Amino acid sequence: MPDRNDWIAVPIGPDLLRGAAEWERTERGLLPHRLPAWARAQNTDPQLAMAESQPSGVRLVFRTEATSVELDVLPTRRIYPGAPPRPDGVHDLLVDGHLAGQAVATGGDTITVDLATGTAEHRPGPVGTVAFDGLPARTKNVEIWLPHNETTELVALRTNAPVQPTPDKERPVWLHHGSSISHGSNATSPSTTWPALAASLGGVELTNLGFGGGALLDPFTARVMRDSRADLISVKIGINVVNADLMRLRAFTPAVHGFLDTVREGHPTTPLLVVSAIYCPIQEDTPGPLAFDFESLGAGELRFRATGDPAERAVGKLTLTVIRDELARVVAQRSVDDPNLYYLDGRELYGEEDFAELPLPDEVHPDAATHRLIGERFAGIAFGEGGPLSAKRP
């Protein structure tokens, strides 16, 4: 450990922060947000409010010769009595794009949620520190990826050598919107969610608007995408619309058109890939809403079940099969006048055969190995030569 007298207090500002729309100054630090304040003001869903404050894809990026780095943070952790404990959020430190360290902060606030009633109790806790030592003694790019699964306030950054911002225009920016799977549910760390892995393999800068439970074709999300910097765009649509039982087919189709219209107002010719849901047996042909399987919870397992009636598809209730067919039709219709619009069936990323080998542990979300599989496949299909988001598109 170097002499503490050599440590430098590094101001945390926008020049070091990637992947966030903005930040909020709190009593103890800076809270990154993935939706700007005006969009948050239009949201009334506490699930989305939680999800957007969890910094999936958000990282501190800088160049330095420092061999030691410390970051003081205030995590907010959620406890669900009766359910399996949620893993603490992990901070990943990358050196020149390669994982060089991981750390979990102690302390932090807790929110205890009763799954049966939805009531919550908030208890404040102390600031914690994550420390990384033994980094290479040379000039290098350092990235600290913040936990994808817990709200994290940034309090202070210290290094034992000066820090310079890294230019933010070295790689194309990939703007992605999706559900909890894109958010990173069940991934083991923030740099190993499937979008983070795909971005690394594809050589692009990720802005992740994957929101657990929040890929619902919200107009304010489309406007955020419209106004965001993006060289490449993808939107993954389907699972949340089904499991929230949010709308019927009559409303879904114009909502998709409206979402794409809004994105195109800001990015009229940017490559835009529409991706449908990965294979999910419980909702392939059964509508939502999705519910906790309380019998499994009683046995200490977290699992979900679909509660809809397949017969209700006849009156417009949505399933993943219905949505995939409609997304393919909408993209085919629009691409006549929009040659930079593409469609990808999510089952090419994870399909029925994959489920047999790598089942979804809770019936909805992939495990760590499946996140890697999806990330590798997306990178090959989308960013590979000739792919819809590649530099050498057909």
Rank of each mutant, 00 (worst) to 15 (best):
Trp7Phe: 15
Phe252Arg: 03
Ser180Arg: 03
Leu320Glu: 05
Ser53Lys: 09
Leu206Ala: 06
Ser182Arg: 06
Thr221Ser: 11
Asp88Cys: 13
Val204Met: 06
Gly212Trp: 00
Glu150Phe: 02
Glu170Pro: 01
Gly288Tyr: 01
Asp293Ala: 01
Asp345Trp: 06
Cys280Trp: 01
Leu216Arg: 14
Ser228Trp: 00
Cys280Ile: 14
Ala379Cys: 09
Asp6Trp: 07
Arg171Ser: 15
Val95Trp: 02
Arg25Gly: 13
His267Phe: 06
Leu349Lys: 04
Gly82Phe: 13
Val155Gln: 08
Asp92Lys: 04
Thr269Val: 12
Pro11Gln: 07
Thr269Ile: 09
Ala37Asn: 08
Val155Gly: 08
Val330Gly: 00
Asn208Ser: 09
Pro84Gly: 09
Val256Gly: 05
Met50Arg: 15
Gly19Lys: 00
Leu17Arg: 02
Pro2Ala: 15
Pro87Glu: 06
His98Gly: 15
Arg158Phe: 04
Gly184Asn: 02
Asp337Met: 10
Val330Leu: 09
Pro394Gln: 14
His371Met: 07
Val95Pro: 00
Gly107Ser: 10
Val10Asp: 00
Leu93Phe: 09
Leu373Gly: 05
Leu115Asn: 09
Arg18Asp: 05
Ala120Thr: 11
Arg86Trp: 13
Glu121Tyr: 13
Arg34Asp: 02
Asn160Lys: 07
Tyr343Cys: 05
Pro361Gln: 10
Phe294Arg: 14
Met225Asp: 08
Pro361Ser: 10
Glu24Asn: 06
Thr67Ser: 14
His183Thr: 02
Val241Leu: 13
Glu24Asp: 11
Pro36Thr: 10
Asn5Leu: 10
Gly346Ile: 01
Lys169His: 15
Thr269Gln: 13
Ser189Phe: 06
Lys140His: 09
Leu175Met: 13
Leu272Gly: 03
Ala255Pro: 09
Arg329Tyr: 12
Leu17Met: 13
Met225Leu: 15
Leu349Gln: 05
Gly57Met: 02
Glu326His: 11
Val263Asp: 03
Asp72His: 08
Asp6Arg: 11
Arg250Gly: 08
Thr44Cys: 13
Val263Asn: 03
His176Pro: 06
Arg393His: 07
Ser179Arg: 03
Phe62Thr: 03
Glu352Gln: 14
Val263His: 05
Leu157Glu: 00
Asp45Arg: 09
Ala251Pro: 07
Lys236Ala: 13
Asp338Gly: 08
Ser276Arg: 02
Thr151Pro: 10
Ala222Asp: 04
Gly212Val: 00
Thr44Met: 14
Met247Asp: 04
Ala332Gly: 07
Arg28Thr: 14
Leu74Asp: 02
Asn149Cys: 01
